[in-house]
Design a protein around this nucleic acid. Structure first.
Lengths: 132, 132
DNA sequence: TCTATATACGATAATTTTAGTCGTATATAA
DNA sequence: TTATATACGACTAAAATTATCGTATATAGA
Protein backbone atom coordinates (compact mmCIF):
# COMPACT_ATOMS: atom_id res chain seq x y z
CA UNK A 1 0.00 0.00 0.00
CA UNK A 2 1.14 3.57 -0.79
CA UNK A 3 4.03 2.28 -2.85
CA UNK A 4 5.51 3.66 -6.03
CA UNK A 5 5.69 1.12 -8.87
CA UNK A 6 8.84 -0.44 -10.25
CA UNK A 7 8.09 1.44 -13.44
CA UNK A 8 8.49 4.77 -11.64
CA UNK A 9 11.46 3.45 -9.72
CA UNK A 10 13.20 2.38 -12.94
CA UNK A 11 12.33 5.69 -14.55
CA UNK A 12 13.93 7.64 -11.70
CA UNK A 13 17.05 5.48 -11.68
CA UNK A 14 17.41 5.93 -15.43
CA UNK A 15 16.84 9.68 -15.29
CA UNK A 16 19.51 10.09 -12.67
CA UNK A 17 21.92 7.91 -14.59
CA UNK A 18 21.35 9.83 -17.82
CA UNK A 19 21.79 13.15 -16.05
CA UNK A 20 25.03 12.11 -14.41
CA UNK A 21 26.43 10.82 -17.68
CA UNK A 22 29.68 12.33 -18.93
CA UNK A 23 28.72 15.32 -21.07
CA UNK A 24 28.65 14.93 -24.81
CA UNK A 25 27.62 11.29 -24.79
CA UNK A 26 24.28 9.63 -24.42
CA UNK A 27 23.33 6.71 -22.15
CA UNK A 28 21.92 3.61 -23.82
CA UNK A 29 19.14 1.37 -22.56
CA UNK A 30 21.54 -1.54 -22.42
CA UNK A 31 24.06 0.34 -20.35
CA UNK A 32 21.45 1.40 -17.80
CA UNK A 33 19.76 -2.01 -17.72
CA UNK A 34 22.96 -3.89 -17.03
CA UNK A 35 24.24 -1.36 -14.51
CA UNK A 36 21.16 -1.64 -12.28
CA UNK A 37 19.87 -5.11 -13.15
CA UNK A 38 16.70 -3.83 -14.82
CA UNK A 39 15.01 -5.99 -17.51
CA UNK A 40 16.18 -4.50 -20.79
CA UNK A 41 12.92 -4.56 -22.75
CA UNK A 42 10.95 -3.18 -19.85
CA UNK A 43 13.37 -0.33 -19.37
CA UNK A 44 13.27 0.35 -23.10
CA UNK A 45 9.52 0.90 -22.96
CA UNK A 46 9.84 3.21 -19.99
CA UNK A 47 12.53 5.28 -21.68
CA UNK A 48 10.38 5.50 -24.80
CA UNK A 49 7.51 6.78 -22.71
CA UNK A 50 9.72 9.38 -21.07
CA UNK A 51 10.80 10.37 -24.57
CA UNK A 52 7.19 10.89 -25.62
CA UNK A 53 6.62 12.95 -22.48
CA UNK A 54 9.50 15.24 -23.44
CA UNK A 55 11.68 14.38 -20.47
CA UNK A 56 14.46 12.84 -22.52
CA UNK A 57 15.33 12.64 -26.20
CA UNK A 58 16.67 9.70 -28.17
CA UNK A 59 19.59 9.25 -30.51
CA UNK A 60 19.06 6.23 -32.76
CA UNK A 61 21.56 3.82 -34.23
CA UNK A 62 24.90 2.53 -32.97
CA UNK A 63 26.30 4.58 -30.07
CA UNK A 64 22.77 5.85 -29.62
CA UNK A 65 20.91 6.38 -26.39
CA UNK A 66 19.18 9.09 -24.42
CA UNK A 67 19.94 12.51 -23.03
CA UNK A 68 17.95 14.83 -20.78
CA UNK A 69 15.78 17.27 -22.69
CA UNK A 70 13.71 18.92 -19.97
CA UNK A 71 14.58 21.14 -17.03
CA UNK A 72 14.12 18.69 -14.18
CA UNK A 73 14.08 21.57 -11.75
CA UNK A 74 10.81 22.80 -13.17
CA UNK A 75 9.01 19.45 -13.04
CA UNK A 76 7.41 18.35 -9.77
CA UNK A 77 7.41 14.79 -8.59
CA UNK A 78 3.62 14.87 -8.77
CA UNK A 79 3.70 15.83 -12.45
CA UNK A 80 6.33 13.20 -13.12
CA UNK A 81 4.27 10.49 -11.38
CA UNK A 82 1.23 11.50 -13.39
CA UNK A 83 3.19 11.47 -16.66
CA UNK A 84 4.36 7.93 -15.93
CA UNK A 85 1.42 6.37 -14.08
CA UNK A 86 -1.58 8.59 -14.62
CA UNK A 87 -3.77 10.39 -12.08
CA UNK A 88 -2.43 10.44 -8.53
CA UNK A 89 -4.80 9.89 -5.63
CA UNK A 90 -5.21 7.85 -2.46
CA UNK A 91 -8.51 6.53 -3.78
CA UNK A 92 -9.92 6.27 -7.29
CA UNK A 93 -12.87 8.46 -6.36
CA UNK A 94 -10.51 11.44 -6.35
CA UNK A 95 -10.61 11.60 -10.15
CA UNK A 96 -13.17 8.94 -11.05
CA UNK A 97 -16.57 9.65 -9.59
CA UNK A 98 -18.47 6.55 -10.69
CA UNK A 99 -18.26 5.04 -7.25
CA UNK A 100 -21.71 3.57 -6.85
CA UNK A 101 -20.53 0.66 -4.76
CA UNK A 102 -20.21 2.78 -1.67
CA UNK A 103 -23.62 4.36 -1.73
CA UNK A 104 -23.10 6.76 1.10
CA UNK A 105 -19.36 7.06 1.66
CA UNK A 106 -18.88 8.69 5.04
CA UNK A 107 -15.17 9.43 4.72
CA UNK A 108 -15.06 11.19 1.37
CA UNK A 109 -14.45 14.70 2.67
CA UNK A 110 -11.69 13.86 5.18
CA UNK A 111 -9.98 11.54 2.70
CA UNK A 112 -9.99 14.27 0.06
CA UNK A 113 -8.24 16.53 2.55
CA UNK A 114 -5.51 13.99 3.27
CA UNK A 115 -5.25 13.31 -0.43
CA UNK A 116 -4.66 16.97 -1.16
CA UNK A 117 -1.94 17.03 1.47
CA UNK A 118 -0.20 14.15 -0.26
CA UNK A 119 -0.49 15.78 -3.67
CA UNK A 120 0.92 18.99 -2.18
CA UNK A 121 3.87 17.07 -0.77
CA UNK A 122 4.79 15.69 -4.17
CA UNK A 123 4.01 19.01 -5.85
CA UNK A 124 6.58 20.91 -3.84
CA UNK A 125 9.33 18.40 -4.58
CA UNK A 126 11.12 18.69 -7.92
CA UNK A 127 12.43 15.83 -10.00
CA UNK A 128 15.86 17.41 -9.73
CA UNK A 129 15.86 16.71 -5.99
CA UNK A 130 15.99 13.02 -6.81
CA UNK A 131 18.19 13.02 -9.87
CA UNK A 132 20.82 15.53 -8.83
CA UNK B 1 0.14 3.72 -7.46
CA UNK B 2 0.24 5.45 -4.05
CA UNK B 3 -3.26 4.23 -3.27
CA UNK B 4 -4.69 3.05 0.00
CA UNK B 5 -6.28 -0.40 -0.20
CA UNK B 6 -9.99 -1.15 0.03
CA UNK B 7 -9.23 -2.90 3.26
CA UNK B 8 -8.05 0.37 4.82
CA UNK B 9 -10.90 2.22 3.16
CA UNK B 10 -13.47 -0.19 4.63
CA UNK B 11 -11.76 -0.02 8.01
CA UNK B 12 -12.00 3.79 8.06
CA UNK B 13 -15.63 3.79 6.95
CA UNK B 14 -16.48 1.25 9.65
CA UNK B 15 -14.59 3.12 12.36
CA UNK B 16 -16.39 6.33 11.56
CA UNK B 17 -19.74 4.57 11.49
CA UNK B 18 -19.11 2.87 14.83
CA UNK B 19 -17.97 6.14 16.40
CA UNK B 20 -21.02 8.03 15.18
CA UNK B 21 -23.38 5.33 16.43
CA UNK B 22 -26.02 6.34 18.94
CA UNK B 23 -24.45 5.89 22.35
CA UNK B 24 -25.20 2.80 24.36
CA UNK B 25 -25.59 0.52 21.36
CA UNK B 26 -23.07 -1.29 19.23
CA UNK B 27 -22.85 -1.41 15.44
CA UNK B 28 -22.98 -4.82 13.80
CA UNK B 29 -21.01 -6.02 10.81
CA UNK B 30 -24.23 -6.58 8.90
CA UNK B 31 -25.48 -3.06 9.56
CA UNK B 32 -22.24 -1.50 8.34
CA UNK B 33 -21.91 -3.82 5.36
CA UNK B 34 -25.40 -3.12 4.07
CA UNK B 35 -25.19 0.61 4.71
CA UNK B 36 -22.07 1.07 2.57
CA UNK B 37 -22.31 -1.88 0.19
CA UNK B 38 -19.25 -3.64 1.61
CA UNK B 39 -18.98 -7.46 1.28
CA UNK B 40 -20.12 -8.79 4.65
CA UNK B 41 -17.52 -11.51 5.22
CA UNK B 42 -14.70 -9.26 4.15
CA UNK B 43 -15.78 -6.51 6.49
CA UNK B 44 -16.12 -9.08 9.27
CA UNK B 45 -12.48 -10.04 8.95
CA UNK B 46 -11.38 -6.42 8.95
CA UNK B 47 -13.40 -5.66 12.08
CA UNK B 48 -11.93 -8.74 13.75
CA UNK B 49 -8.46 -7.50 12.94
CA UNK B 50 -9.24 -4.06 14.35
CA UNK B 51 -10.51 -5.85 17.45
CA UNK B 52 -7.22 -7.71 17.83
CA UNK B 53 -5.39 -4.40 17.40
CA UNK B 54 -7.37 -2.90 20.26
CA UNK B 55 -9.12 -0.27 18.20
CA UNK B 56 -12.59 -1.66 18.78
CA UNK B 57 -14.13 -4.30 21.01
CA UNK B 58 -16.76 -6.89 20.19
CA UNK B 59 -20.02 -7.89 21.79
CA UNK B 60 -21.03 -11.40 20.73
CA UNK B 61 -24.44 -12.88 20.22
CA UNK B 62 -27.75 -11.40 19.04
CA UNK B 63 -27.75 -7.60 19.14
CA UNK B 64 -23.99 -7.84 19.21
CA UNK B 65 -21.51 -5.73 17.32
CA UNK B 66 -18.60 -3.41 17.91
CA UNK B 67 -17.81 -0.26 19.83
CA UNK B 68 -14.73 1.98 19.87
CA UNK B 69 -12.22 1.02 22.54
CA UNK B 70 -9.24 3.24 21.76
CA UNK B 71 -8.70 6.98 21.84
CA UNK B 72 -8.63 7.74 18.14
CA UNK B 73 -7.12 11.11 18.86
CA UNK B 74 -3.94 9.47 20.08
CA UNK B 75 -3.48 7.18 17.08
CA UNK B 76 -1.83 8.53 13.95
CA UNK B 77 -2.90 7.57 10.47
CA UNK B 78 0.58 6.12 9.96
CA UNK B 79 0.18 3.81 12.96
CA UNK B 80 -3.31 2.86 11.80
CA UNK B 81 -2.09 2.04 8.30
CA UNK B 82 0.69 -0.08 9.74
CA UNK B 83 -1.71 -1.91 12.07
CA UNK B 84 -3.92 -2.79 9.12
CA UNK B 85 -1.48 -3.23 6.25
CA UNK B 86 1.98 -3.57 7.76
CA UNK B 87 5.11 -1.46 7.17
CA UNK B 88 4.55 1.78 5.30
CA UNK B 89 7.05 2.87 2.67
CA UNK B 90 7.28 4.09 -0.91
CA UNK B 91 9.58 1.18 -1.72
CA UNK B 92 10.14 -2.15 -0.02
CA UNK B 93 13.79 -1.36 0.56
CA UNK B 94 12.72 1.06 3.26
CA UNK B 95 12.15 -1.79 5.70
CA UNK B 96 13.39 -4.81 3.74
CA UNK B 97 17.00 -4.55 2.75
CA UNK B 98 17.42 -7.72 0.68
CA UNK B 99 17.32 -5.78 -2.56
CA UNK B 100 20.03 -7.49 -4.56
CA UNK B 101 18.30 -6.97 -7.88
CA UNK B 102 19.33 -3.34 -8.05
CA UNK B 103 23.01 -3.79 -7.42
CA UNK B 104 23.89 -0.16 -7.22
CA UNK B 105 20.68 1.77 -6.63
CA UNK B 106 21.43 5.40 -7.34
CA UNK B 107 18.25 6.89 -5.90
CA UNK B 108 18.16 5.26 -2.47
CA UNK B 109 19.12 8.33 -0.46
CA UNK B 110 16.75 10.82 -2.12
CA UNK B 111 13.90 8.30 -2.09
CA UNK B 112 14.42 7.70 1.62
CA UNK B 113 14.08 11.44 2.17
CA UNK B 114 10.81 11.64 0.25
CA UNK B 115 9.64 8.54 2.04
CA UNK B 116 10.29 10.10 5.41
CA UNK B 117 8.30 13.15 4.35
CA UNK B 118 5.35 10.92 3.51
CA UNK B 119 5.59 9.05 6.79
CA UNK B 120 5.73 12.40 8.61
CA UNK B 121 2.60 13.53 6.82
CA UNK B 122 0.63 10.51 8.01
CA UNK B 123 2.24 10.70 11.44
CA UNK B 124 0.94 14.16 12.13
CA UNK B 125 -2.62 13.26 11.17
CA UNK B 126 -4.76 11.49 13.77
CA UNK B 127 -7.36 8.85 13.07
CA UNK B 128 -9.87 11.12 14.75
CA UNK B 129 -9.45 13.64 11.93
CA UNK B 130 -11.05 11.12 9.60
CA UNK B 131 -13.62 9.56 11.87
CA UNK B 132 -14.93 12.65 13.62
C1' DT C 1 -32.81 -25.75 26.63
C1' DC C 2 -33.32 -24.64 21.86
C1' DT C 3 -32.86 -21.42 18.14
C1' DA C 4 -31.54 -17.51 15.71
C1' DT C 5 -28.01 -14.28 15.33
C1' DA C 6 -23.56 -12.50 15.93
C1' DT C 7 -18.40 -12.68 16.16
C1' DA C 8 -13.75 -15.63 15.15
C1' DC C 9 -10.75 -17.32 11.84
C1' DG C 10 -8.03 -20.31 8.69
C1' DA C 11 -8.13 -21.77 3.92
C1' DT C 12 -9.06 -20.97 -0.65
C1' DA C 13 -10.71 -18.74 -4.97
C1' DA C 14 -11.34 -14.85 -8.09
C1' DT C 15 -9.96 -10.58 -9.80
C1' DT C 16 -7.04 -6.82 -10.76
C1' DT C 17 -2.76 -4.72 -11.11
C1' DT C 18 1.93 -4.86 -11.95
C1' DA C 19 5.91 -6.75 -14.15
C1' DG C 20 8.11 -8.71 -17.86
C1' DT C 21 8.54 -10.84 -22.73
C1' DC C 22 8.01 -11.34 -27.82
C1' DG C 23 8.04 -10.05 -32.45
C1' DT C 24 8.64 -6.75 -35.77
C1' DA C 25 9.72 -2.20 -37.69
C1' DT C 26 12.76 1.75 -38.31
C1' DA C 27 17.00 4.53 -38.02
C1' DT C 28 21.99 5.13 -38.51
C1' DA C 29 27.10 4.71 -37.69
C1' DA C 30 30.84 2.32 -39.50
C1' DT D 1 25.62 -4.05 -45.91
C1' DT D 2 25.78 -5.16 -41.20
C1' DA D 3 25.56 -4.52 -36.44
C1' DT D 4 23.41 -1.90 -33.01
C1' DA D 5 20.13 1.08 -31.18
C1' DT D 6 15.36 3.02 -30.49
C1' DA D 7 9.87 2.40 -31.31
C1' DC D 8 5.89 0.05 -30.16
C1' DG D 9 1.74 -2.99 -30.04
C1' DA D 10 0.40 -7.49 -28.38
C1' DC D 11 0.87 -10.87 -25.22
C1' DT D 12 2.21 -13.65 -20.93
C1' DA D 13 3.58 -14.21 -16.12
C1' DA D 14 3.64 -13.06 -11.49
C1' DA D 15 2.17 -10.76 -7.53
C1' DA D 16 -0.99 -8.31 -4.80
C1' DT D 17 -5.55 -7.36 -3.72
C1' DT D 18 -10.27 -8.51 -3.08
C1' DA D 19 -13.74 -11.69 -2.00
C1' DT D 20 -15.79 -16.20 -0.59
C1' DC D 21 -16.29 -20.69 1.95
C1' DG D 22 -16.70 -23.59 5.78
C1' DT D 23 -16.70 -24.26 10.46
C1' DA D 24 -16.43 -22.98 15.36
C1' DT D 25 -17.88 -20.34 19.40
C1' DA D 26 -20.69 -17.15 22.15
C1' DT D 27 -25.16 -15.43 23.83
C1' DA D 28 -29.83 -13.14 23.95
C1' DG D 29 -34.39 -14.38 24.01
C1' DA D 30 -38.38 -17.53 23.38
Amino acid sequence: MLKITRKVEYALIALRHIQNNSSGTVASTKEIATTYGIPHQLLAKILQQMGREGLISAVKGPNGGYKISANLNEISLKDFFEKIEGPLGLMDCYFNSDCNQLKACNILTPIQRINQNMRDLFSKTSLQEITQ
